[in-house]
Amino acid sequence: MLLIRCPYCEEERPELEFRNAGEAHIARSANMAGESDHDFEKFFFIRSNPKGIIYERWRHVHGCARFFNAVRDTVTDKFVMTYKAGEPKPSKLPGVTK
């Protein structure tokens, strides 16, 4: 069972308290109705499935109930970092070398 740090509670809590909510940093268009088929497909259906670093959303559903973002390595299953919803994608990751 993973330990996940909730950036709002500022604590590591067991995975049982959380729920994964899919890939992060996929913004909903401000002009949703006007999106092209191609753009809507990209927004709604296309997800990355990387071997390695993934940016994803989690919800501390059985805790503070907040949604937040996390960086996780899909190979080691280790969390690199977590940060609050709305914060930009981190440009530098601690302990990760390209």
Binding site: R19, R28, R57, R59, A65, R66, F67, A85
Partner: peptide
């Protein structure tokens, strides 16, 4: 959950 998701992340 659906409502919270939109409120917290898309329409904060």
């Amino acid at each position: 959950n659906h409502m919270e998701d939109y409120l917290q992340t898309e329409f904060p």
